[in-house]
């Protein structure tokens, strides 16, 4: 019904708008975007905007009874069990979260894309082998595997990033596998084959460009998963090790005291939630804008 009528007119094309413009028209995406910018700003400028050194165990950072200081006054968000300024630790913790979010997720995305697209396009024994391997990885309880790996290697920032990448590529691989198989069956790919195009040309000129929006979307959503996984590992004590501040290990260090000093859980917890939420909001909006199969869902 939507097809235009009559003697073959040129269908008036909607003026192509930038992805960013369309993104910025969504209030939720804007909120997410702002949160991300704020976090990146905090991470980059932490040395200048943090009121104290995050590792300083300050003499006046504890009450006379040795308890942490509540929020307000000199220490805006209070202090932790060792008398360190919580705000400063959270600001520096943003660096940990973002570095891991970008590095681990970048690596996971790369592995997932290569495996998913190869398996989806070539099928046959290669595709079957790759997908059986993916099934095997699916059967591992991801967090348990990550804990094992993190316990094996002495956890450092980079090791934690790699561990997260190893358990996190599976989802991307599965999604891109499905998408690639359905793309490979599309008629325009068959048409390319009848023109005599080879695998390399079809893969890079016709399949990958169609996958880019999806890769961007999953890349963005994946950062959120990664941030949560890092926080969880650090909370369990097998992630980023103190004294390097991470939002997860701040809670890990202080949870024994959380009944009397709930802000030590609340503030870093809120930071994790907001950053993960921000990437989820932006990723979801990107999906609506970029992914034609999802268009018109909202």
């Amino acid at each position: 019904m939507a097809d235009t009528a009559g003697p073959e007119p040129i269908v008036a094309s909607a003026r192509p708008e930038g992805t960013l413009t369309r993104l910025m028209r969504r209030p939720l995406a804007v909120i997410g975007f702002v949160l991300i910018v704020v976090t990146v700003g905090a991470a980059v400028f932490a040395p200048w905007i943090a009121p104290f050194n995050p590792d300083d165990q300050m003499f006046d950072g504890l009450t006379l009874q040795g308890a942490p200081m509540p929020p307000g006054g000199k220490f805006l968000l209070g202090t932790d069990l060792l008398g360190r300024d919580l705000l400063s630790r959270i600001l520096f913790g943003a660096r940990t979260s973002l570095i891991i979010g970008l590095v681990a997720n970048g690596a996971a995305l790369t592995i997932g894309t290569v495996i998913g697209v190869t398996a989806g396009y070539f099928r046959g024994w290669l595709g079957a082998a790759l997908m059986r391997f993916t099934d095997l990885m699916m059967a591992f309880p991801a967090l348990l595997l990550a804990i094992c790996l993190a316990a094996i290697f002495q956890p450092s920032l980079w090791i934690v990033a790699m561990v997260i990448a190893i358990v996190n590529w599976v989802q991307t691989a599965r999604v891109l596998y499905t998408e690639t198989t359905s793309l490979a069956e599309r008629e325009f790919i068959a048409a390319e084959k009848t023109l005599g195009a080879g695998h390399i040309r079809i893969l890079f000129r016709h399949i990958l460009p169609h996958l880019v929006p999806m890769i961007i979307v999953w890349g963005t959503l994946g950062i959120s998963t990664t941030v949560l996984l890092e926080a969880t590992l650090s909370y369990l004590g097998v992630g980023v090790q103190p004294p390097t501040p991470s939002w997860g290990n701040i809670i890990f260090e202080n949870q024994t005291y959380f009944q009397s000093a709930p802000w030590l859980v609340f503030f870093p917890g809120a930071a994790i939630l907001l950053l993960a939420l921000a990437f989820n909001l932006v990723g979801d909006a990107l999906r609506d804008v970029l992914d034609p199969t999802q268009r018109g869902r909202d």
């Binding site: 008629e187 068959a190 390319e192 005599g196 195009a197 080879g198 016709h206």
Partner: peptide, 26 residues
């Protein structure tokens, strides 16, 4: 070959001039 559905058999991300030149390039 000319397929049934012209929209499905043309890569939607390419300009039509490039699409027609595609066999020559290949």
């Amino acid at each position: 070959m000319v397929f049934q559905d012209p929209m499905a058999s043309l890569d939607p991300r390419m300009r039509v001039g490039d699409l027609v030149a595609e066999p020559l390039v290949i």
